[in-house]
Structure formats: structure tokens, C-alpha cells
């Protein structure tokens, strides 16, 4: 009898751990930064999994909804500012806003196609490091073939956590763009950089997937 109780406890504990690892419930250590990231990721997955949104005539609408959901969590102006480094301060508020908008379009067009190709990958929340108004959330994405480490860097602005950098497999998105922008600005003007961002965004814009959405490009 006692043996059975022990076994039951082990199975239950194992089940709970498995449940947590799959990211299905909030782990006990999860603080507000993890909850913020989880809320957005869960919402994105819910939209992607919803059969109502999979209808071909609603794909364009779904893409807009996804972009809106993501932009509520991602602080694009801060990402643009950090990516531009010292150059940011040299420009007027209008130029900064224009640049941030172009940068948002570029990021959105770069990643939205990959997000739409989602096919049940599991997100695991590993740990959270917080330091005052800054935090880093460590996650693993299990694609079925490989595990990808993705860390989200967040900043608390008026009681809400916003992502300002994403570190994929140890490489920072902000640093990647900062080095590219620096290289372009060494040769060309800021206006030219803005123009290049616009051109690139238009060029890479992924076509809205049609009804016969398959595993292509995954």
C-alpha cells in the first residue's frame, strides 16, 4: 500500500515537472517578466492555432492581428534606438520616429513569415533574471529537430514589461543591427540608411500564405 502511494507521488511529481517543462503551466519561479513573455507567446500561438483564422480570406487580417499582438510587447522604438547607438541622439524626434517605424516594418517583415510557419513547436521557460527595471527571460524552443535558445531582454516601463532585445543562440538582435548600421553609416548618410531600410522591408516582405500552407521554408 505504502509502495503504491510512493509510486503515485513519483508519477504525479514527474507529470507536474513534464507539464511545466512543456510550458503549459506557470512554473513556481515565474515572475512578472516571464508572465509578460508567456502572455504574448500564448496569444500568438492561440491565433496561429485557431482554425477560424486559417481560412485563406482571413490570412491578411490574421497577419495584422499578429503584428499588433507582438508590437504590444516589443518596444520597437527602444530597439531602433539601441540599434542605432550614438547616431540616434544626433537626429530630430521626427527623424527618430520615422526611423523607428521603418525598423519596425523591417523586423516585422523579416520574422512574420517564420512565425506564420509555426507548427506546434514547444516553448519552454527556463529561468528569469531580474535586476530592478530590467529582466531577461530564458526560453528554449523545441522544433522537433533541434533546440533553439531564445532569451528575451525586457525593461519595465510604467508597470508593463517590454522586450527591447532578443538573444538567439547567444547572438543579440540589437548588436547585429547596430554593427550593420554602423557599417552603412560609415559610408552613407542617415537618410540613405533609412532609404535602405525601407527598400529592404519591401523586398523581403513575405507573401501572405495561401490556403495550401505547408511546411515549406521551415
Amino acid at each position: 500500500m505504502r509502495w503504491h502511494a510512493t509510486m503515485l507521488a513519483v508519477v504525479l511529481a514527474g507529470g507536474l515537472v513534464g507539464w511545466n517543462v512543456l510550458g503549459l503551466t506557470a512554473p513556481a519561479w515565474a515572475g512578472p517578466p516571464v508572465e509578460a513573455v508567456r502572455k504574448t507567446i500564448d496569444e500568438v500561438i492561440r491565433i496561429l492555432d485557431d482554425p477560424a483564422w486559417k481560412k485563406p480570406d482571413r490570412k491578411e487580417e490574421r497577419r495584422k492581428l499578429l503584428e499588433r499582438t507582438i508590437s504590444q510587447r516589443f518596444n520597437y522604438p527602444e530597439m531602433a534606438k539601441r540599434s542605432l547607438g550614438a547616431e540616434w541622439g544626433k537626429h530630430s524626434a521626427e527623424e527618430q520616429n520615422d526611423f523607428a517605424a521603418n525598423f519596425q516594418t523591417l523586423l516585422s517583415n523579416t520574422y512574420i513569415g517564420r512565425i506564420e510557419a509555426y507548427s506546434g513547436e514547444k516553448v519552454q521557460y527556463l529561468k528569469e533574471l531580474s535586476d530592478g527595471e530590467f529582466a531577461e527571460v530564458y526560453t528554449h524552443v523545441d522544433t522537433g529537430k533541434s533546440m533553439i535558445d531564445i532569451n528575451y531582454k525586457l525593461q519595465k516601463i510604467s508597470d508593463e514589461w517590454h522586450v527591447y532585445d532578443v538573444v538567439v543562440e547567444g547572438t543579440s538582435l540589437v548588436l547585429n543591427y547596430r554593427e550593420q548600421f554602423k557599417r552603412i553609416l560609415r559610408k552613407d548618410s542617415f537618410a540613405e540608411l533609412s532609404r535602405q531600410l525601407r527598400d529592404k522591408s519591401a523586398h523581403i516582405k513575405a507573401p501572405v500564405p495561401d490556403g495550401s500552407e505547408t511546411a515549406k521554408g521551415r
Binding site: K81, W88, G89, K153, D165, L175
Partner: peptide, 21 residues
Amino acid sequence: SPGGSQKELPPGGKIRETESG
């Protein structure tokens, strides 16, 4: 990468953004 926000890092300060490569 020195960055360019308004706040300069004081002596003894901590670089928050790091990349392990």
C-alpha cells in the same frame, strides 16, 4: 560596442547587455 544612450556608464558600473557568442 559603446552604445549611445544619454546615460554614461560610471566607473565601477555594470554592462547590462552581454553576448556569450
